[in-house]
């Protein structure tokens, strides 16, 4: 019952905050500022109009979203898989850590967008280059968290398993891996935001579809309505991804929830 009351209160707060935001936006763009930026109503109208029916460029808005999402998901999952394996291996084996840690420490601080020129030269302007950039955005965050997660497992868990007769590989899979899940999830969440930002940057450089292209094409055509529609779509998709992610995390890490 308490939980339900809280949810209703949360919903009311969310509605009020959104209403205030759109109200300020609406009032603010009624005067001179309206010449530079459209109000919320034309943007929402364009958003709904182009979502499934009207086209922006060659596709509807939902198709542009699908292009961006597909790029993100491919790069994100490949980066996450490689990052989890490498990070756990580095946290588990001093030899693997000694080999890969210096390289990783150099690559990690480089923002994914700094790789854009190199990726174009190496891979070209097609899909592969975009996925490569997204891979980098995902890989670094996930590797870092999996590495520190595996390295900081409470030694008493490992000693307890060892005393009960567990060998090295058993300790890795039944102790180190599950103990590292919360930090890995934290890395996955940051990586997802980073991938979403990176795909937009990649699409702005060279693309004929996707949310990044909508914004850059809107800028080239001086179409503020289109730019704001693209921004609104980015925000909504980002929010949806984040919500889905939190649900998955809550399910897989329910043992780690503080309200337990």
């Amino acid at each position: 019952m308490k939980k339900k009351t809280f949810n209703i209160a949360e919903l009311i707060c969310a509605v009020i905050s959104l209403a205030v935001f759109f109200g300020i936006w609406h009032l603010g763009t009624r005067g001179e500022l309206g010449k530079l930026m459209p109000g919320p109503l034309p943007v929402i109208e364009k958003f709904l109009q182009t979502l499934f029916g009207g086209k922006i460029g060659s596709s509807t808005l939902i198709v542009h979203v699908a292009y961006s999402l597909a790029r993100v998901m491919i790069g994100y999952f490949i980066g996450a898989a490689v990052g989890i394996v490498l990070g756990l291996s580095m946290g588990w084996s001093p030899l693997i850590e000694a080999i890969f840690a210096p390289l990783f420490r150099i690559i990690r601080p480089i923002p994914p967008i700094a790789w854009i020129p190199i990726s174009i030269i190496w891979i070209g302007l097609g899909e592969d280059a975009k996925i490569f950039l997204i891979f980098l955005a995902s890989f670094c965050y996930v590797t870092q968290n999996a590495w520190s997660g595996a390295k900081n497992v409470n030694p008493e868990y490992m000693n307890a398993a060892r005393m009960l007769g567990a060998g090295k590989s058993r300790i890795l899979f039944t102790v180190v891996l599950p103990a590292s899940i919360p930090p890995i999830f934290a890395g996955l969440q940051v990586a997802l935001s980073s991938c979403w930002a990176t795909v937009l940057a990649a699409e702005m450089v060279r693309s004929s579809e996707g949310l990044g292209w909508i914004i850059i094409a809107g800028m080239n055509n001086n179409d503020m309505n289109q730019i704001m529609t693209g921004i609104l779509a980015i925000g909504l998709v980002g929010m949806m991804l984040s919500t889905i992610f939190r649900k998955v995390e809550a399910r897989l890490c329910r043992w780690n929830r503080s309200e337990n």
Partner: peptide, 16 residues
């Protein structure tokens, strides 16, 4: 067949 009970809590938090 050896078992060890540690000073601190060594139960695995991810297991019931």
């Amino acid at each position: 067949h050896i078992a060890y009970i540690f000073q601190g809590n060594s139960t695995m938090p991810w297991l019931t």
